[in-house]
């Protein structure tokens, strides 16, 4: 286990590969933001814009890259005499830490981009800011905003990581059925989110309420502190915790399926 974790964090195919992929993706998104800034700066109508590319596309890229790295690590661990149990535990730990680091990296990129936008008299809304809309210059890069946005981003990354490991796990066991089943799970999550259907819909609805009301908690000096949903008082800490815990739980459920698939999958490479 120690050797495997050492490889994941210091070796060639773990964090290093993931960071290289993510660095390129975030760099690309930064360039995209600059391009949009150049287009918008000519237009006097805009003073800030809700893009959320870092949180949305960034999470999608993060999930895809984590899937790629997980599949490579699975093959390497089979080559290197790592038991499936160590691989599963080690990769799960790595997933949580990678997601936290990615979430932090996305916030750093957001702040840098926001500062560049400010140089041109513009502003870039992160996910949390997009709901507040006014007085943005005071709170756009305040620590509370960034921490809350990091929690929301972490939730998104964990969700996409979950889809990703589900796909990798099913592919190792069921081969061609994996895209169909994973696709169905993604559609089910999307349906639950859109229609507030079933327990997942309830969860998404609750998180959305928390996001909305906790946005007030992000900037109490502007919006006040009293906010409640269905009689439940919302605080900044509640919101952060709700997103982080929900993200970990959703990931854990899909990771459990991945673990079950890997525990019964023969590890073979190309012939």
């Amino acid at each position: 286990m120690r050797g495997y974790l050492g490889y994941v964090f210091r070796g060639r195919e773990g964090l290093r590969s993931y960071a290289a992929f993510m660095g390129a993706a975030l760099g690309g998104l930064f360039v995209l933001h600059l391009f949009i800034l150049i287009v918008l700066v000519k237009d006097d109508y805009f003073d800030h814009i809700d893009l959320m590319f870092y949180e949305g596309l960034g999470s999608l890229f993060a999930g895809a890259f984590f899937g790629i790295v997980t599949e490579r690590l699975m093959k390497l661990s089979a080559f290197g005499g790592v038991s499936r149990r160590s691989f599963i535990i080690g990769t799960g730990v790595a997933g949580l830490l990678f997601a936290a680091l990615t979430s932090a990296a996305i916030q750093v990129m957001y702040i840098i981009t926001e500062l560049v936008y400010r140089l041109f008299g513009m502003g870039l809304d992160c996910m949390v800011m997009s709901g507040i809309g006014t007085h943005r210059s005071e709170v756009a890069i305040a620590p509370r905003t960034i921490i809350f946005n990091a929690a929301v981003t972490f939730f998104g990354i964990m969700l996409i990581y979950g889809f990703s490991v589900l796909f990798v796990g099913l592919r190792s066991r069921l081969r061609r059925a994996a895209p169909v089943i994973t696709g169905a799970v993604v559609v089910f999550f999307g349906y639950s989110y859109d229609m507030y259907a079933g327990p997942l819909g309830e969860l998404f609805g609750m998180l959305e309420d928390r996001l909305m009301f906790s946005e007030y908690a992000v900037a109490p000096e502007i919006f006040g502190t009293a906010a409640s949903v269905n009689g439940i008082s919302m605080t900044f800490g509640d919101g952060v915790l709700a997103f982080v815990v929900s993200g970990v739980l959703i990931f854990a459920v899909m990771y459990a399926v991945f673990a079950l698939a890997v525990m019964r999958a023969p590890l073979r490479g190309r012939g």
């Binding site: 495997y4 060639r12 093959k75 490479g269």
Partner: peptide, 18 residues
């Protein structure tokens, strides 16, 4: 089993972890 894009020297240096 090893990813095709890996260089021989990378595999050799990775071996010590396993």
């Amino acid at each position: 089993l090893l990813p095709g894009y890996m260089r021989v020297k990378d595999v050799i240096s990775s071996m010590r972890y396993f």
